[in-house]
Design a protein around this nucleic acid. Sequence first.
DNA 1: TCTGGGGTCCTAGGACCC
DNA 2: TCTGGGGTCCTAGGACCC
Length: 427
Amino acid sequence: MKPPPLYALADCNNFYVSCERVFNPKLEKKPVLVLSNNDGCVVARSNEVKALGIKMGIPYYQCREIAEKHKVEVLSSNYTLYADMSCRVMMTLQQFTPRMEIYSIDEAFLDFARLPISSPTEYAAFIRNTVKKWTGIPISIGIGPTKTLAKLANEIAKHAPEAEGVFDIASRTAEERDALLAKIPASEIWGVGPRLTEKLGLYGVRFIGDLLRQPDDWVKKHLTIAGLRTVWELKGRPCIPLEQLPAARKSLVSSRSFGQPVTELTDLEEAVASYTSGAAERLRGQKLITQFVQVFITTNGYGREPQYANSTICELPRPTAFTPELVKVALRLVRKIYRKGYRYKKAGVLFTGLVPETAQQQNLFVPVADRHQEKVLMKIVDLINARYGADTVKCAAEGLAPGWTMKSDRRSRRFTTRWEDLPVAKT
DNA sequence: TCTGGGGTCCTAGGACCC
DNA sequence: TCTGGGGTCCTAGGACCC
């Protein structure tokens, strides 16, 4: 007999803040927030910061005053550190189930259905303690018969103090579950964002209970097929399967806002060359090659100044991950769309039509031997940059001392991935 | 003054074809 | 005044996620 489906969602609490605290215990119990790239927006908040009413995603300048008043520790994001910590958490979680989906940098779904356990709640509590002990990262775990319900259970686990970080919605009776869902705002549902919340509100649908009372065809009409799946999941009917293998990537983008507005083509060229080079390195890291290169540039959409945004795309004669070729194409594209007289805020490069490097088509006009040389060259460049630090070797087109780089004034050290940055226990 | 980056999926509408 | 119908493919835009 097939056991009934049971999913656990493990979610790291305030993940980036927790990573920082592992290596800087002085931050414990203090208000801490982490900013996005370019020190632009708030992307992680400790509970103390949440209590101050500082909202997720807002631009930092809108909360600087209150942050300074309450002596909030403000940090730039350190993605190298977070990615490595994420890896440790995921490896730990992996010990507890043969079937797991890494959903994001700080979340994983664990299949609990086939495990020889008598109490999912106790098992989850054990997992939670182990992750904390092995990695230093606090997590919460929600358990449910579908992924959407496990997500919701996780929210409950995080906010109900008596839950102690674990909540199992599957073990509740139908009445208990209905009573619980009736009081939760529809905006908390996985897959319901601000737009849909507003739209639902117009129809008087404010709580999950309201939504579950709507007939299927009403849901499909107003929320599309994705919304209908969500509603079925909320009713306990699994529609979103566990994805153990990450889906094949379809696109890869590298884009940045500039620390200061850029007006000159030469600066844009350097930025685009640099993003292209970084994107190409990631492409190779995933053993992919790209068929299309797209470049986009844009002025600051928030400002009142004259606006301009454009993008253009080029199909390559054959898919590749060879940096010099990609940079050459990207530079041609940025020159094509550049217009003098604007203050540019952001540029980016998008690779689409990705295929595995092993699936490469032969091309009559490009000798196989040349391609082999390209591959060897890129491999050596990647090795050097991995060992001696990013940008030890790079294209001249990327510039030497660019003035357009992003702000990152308060970044912590790369404690776990650079020898020079190893934490010092005592000096 | 200051507003992130990197993804996916769905739909509507136009182009095009027979 | 009348002005086909139905299918596919592609793209842009909108919505969501973290």
